[in-house]
Design a protein around this nucleic acid. Structure first.
Length: 538
DNA sequence: CGACTTTGACCTGCGC
DNA sequence: GCGCAGGTCAAAGTCG
């Protein structure tokens, strides 16, 4: 990936069932566009897409975002930023027609909000001479207008938050790459030690898992003595392990790599790992979760024991990509969507999808690194829980009943949200966002409730587990990488989407932002992260 | 017309 | 060998 590229355009589709900032696909010439998700009926075009500047250069991206987001009036000016002419006009009409005075004047760095500007005047006043009924009518009208305006602002803020999420994902992946690079030399040493200690390949596999990403140019330019794993070639024979797109790759054409990568792992292990699947359980009303890749449905079946049909998808981001996924609702709780990935992509992934891939790969690789040569080792779910999810032993499990091991990431169970936000600086926590346990407004439509909440959960997985992948060259928790930013973004997203009372949740979100960024600054290991964190403090 | 979904038919592996 | 279940294929249908 060319991270030095210029500014392009990132297009998000607001009609997506899961408005996830990660669903990107590459276009040419510095343009990133998000394509219509396949699950929205399969029919493209239509519902509004929003576009905003986006670059793959995090620093420049952040600057651009700040430029855009610190403009004087979000309501008046930034509408251009998010919507088409029709929406813009509609919004202006709504605002003009509303008797409600609004002084949002949001100037938050990165999020477009400034602490002292959180004054919102509802303007619901009784005027002299009005009858009581007229006053009530006026009040009702004003409230309705206010509600409409709040809804629009919710939409807008969601867009902004998604943008921040996107930018952060790209930034985070770049950081991960740098950290991987930094860890190369120690890894080589550790590999040697592993070999001397009779390591059966688990740790090697783990590192190979972690050698991710289309930022392969960085790896290729590295002088590391360890194997520089290339992305899998287009030949399926080179696909070794599947876990949502990234796995163990073997380059038969390179004698050096063939030597280094044909390892100590037994054929049995290789066979097992080749069939490894990663399953993600998440609550969602949407037909599928949005994971950043393009999928084409090729089949549907009623599986035994579950009245809900199982849908089969294959990746269509590149011809011949062997990655498939199955999507099925849980028989016991139909609000839970189970997505199972199998195979390895033969093409570069968008940053967000890569983060997701890293997440699943991290889980799978950690699992494998915990195994030695026995199936019992493979099934040691406690190991995975301890290593990857020190804060939640119930999130990741391994299925031993399947013909091949399946790593299950259960996003339907989350640790205490406050616990996450209170995580002291310097202590790593696998932050399934925290938002998971936010109160669920029962009366809200799915788009404001469950779906977006789960989306937030999932995006949290993307960010943080990808981080986990970068952080855990060995399956031992290390310190630390600030998770406050994504927590903040997720907290803000969830707060906004979980409660129609915009002012209250905005205040809550800001509070979480203001109160939760210390750790980010304290533990920042990256200029860009520091910059973003700093901007949050303004 | 192309891209995509739907859905019945077909293939394959496994247990009895 | 047979039946079952999971997975895949491909023709038909849908939509913009």
């Amino acid at each position: 990936m060319d991270n030095s590229g210029g500014i392009g355009v990132l297009t998000l589709d607001t009609s997506a069932p899961l408005f996830l900032a990660s669903s990107l696909s590459y276009g040419g010439g510095g343009i990133l566009k998000r394509k219509q998700p396949m699950d929205s009926g399969g029919h493209h075009g239509g519902a509004g897409t929003i576009e905003f500047p986006f670059s793959l250069n995090p620093r420049r991206d952040a600057e651009t975002a700040n430029e855009a987001l610190t403009s004087k009036r979000v309501v008046a000016d930034e509408v251009d930023f998010f919507s088409d002419e029709k929406k813009k006009q509609k919004k202006k009409d709504t605002i003009a027609a509303s008797p409600v005075e609004t002084d949002l004047d949001l100037k938050v760095p990165s999020l477009g909000i400034k602490k002292e500007d959180l004054t919102i005047q509802t303007g619901l006043h009784l005027r002299n001479g009005d009858t009581a009924k007229e006053s009530v009518d006026d009040g009702m009208a004003a409230m309705q207008a206010e509600l409409a305006r709040m809804n629009e602002e919710n939409q807008k803020l969601r867009g902004m938050l998604s943008q921040v999420n996107s930018s952060y994902s790209a930034l985070q992946m770049q950081l991960a790459t740098l950290m991987q690079q930094r860890n190369r030399t120690p890894q080589a040493h550790e590999e040697k030690i592993d070999a001397e200690n009779g390591d059966q390949g688990g740790a090697r596999v783990l590192r190979q898992f972690l050698d991710l990403g289309p930022d392969a140019d960085v790896d290729e330019h590295s002088n590391s003595s360890t194997a520089s794993l290339e992305r899998s070639s287009s030949t399926p024979e080179n696909v070794e392990v599947g876990s949502m797109g990234y796995g163990l790759h073997k380059n038969e054409g390179n004698p050096r790599e063939a030597l280094e990568l044909t390892p100590t792992a037994t054929a049995e292990q290789e066979s097992t790992m080749r069939r490894t699947r990663v399953s993600v359980r998440a609550r969602s009303e949407a037909p599928t979760i949005t994971d950043g890749c393009q999928w084409r449905k090729y089949g549907q079946k009623i599986a035994k024991g579950n009245p809900c049909p199982r849908a089969y998808y294959r990746c269509t981001m590149a011809t011949g990509c062997p990655v498939r996924k199955q999507v099925q609702r849980c028989a016991d709780d139909r609000s839970i969507l189970i997505t199972t990935y199998e195979g390895t992509h033969n093409h570069p992934l968008p940053p967000a999808a890569m983060a997701m891939a890293s997440a699943t790969s991290a889980a799978a690789s950690t699992l494998f690194s915990g195994s030695t040569s026995s199936a019992d080792g493979l099934m040691n779910s406690n190991f995975l829980s301890r290593a990857v999810l020190p804060c939640s032993s119930s999130v990741a499990t391994i299925s031993a009943s399947a013909p091949f091991p399946t790593v299950t990431l259960d996003l339907t169970r989350s640790p205490d949200p406050l616990q996450s936000l209170r995580t002291p600086a310097g202590q790593f926590q696998f932050p399934f966002p925290a938002l998971g346990a936010l109160p669920q407004p029962p009366s809200l439509p799915p788009v404001f409730g469950q779906t977006l909440l789960n989306q937030s959960r999932f995006s949290g997985l993307q960010v943080s587990s990808g981080m986990a992948a970068a952080q855990f060259p060995h399956p031992k928790p290390q310190t630390t990488m600030p998770s406050s930013l994504e927590e903040t973004v997720n907290a803000a997203t969830a707060a906004i989407t979980a409660d129609p009372n915009f002012t209250a949740v905005l205040a809550a979100a800001i509070k979480s932002i203001i109160g939760g960024n210390d750790q980010a600054v304290n533990s920042s290991q990256n200029d860009n992260v520091a910059k973003k964190s700093y901007s949050l403090q303004q």
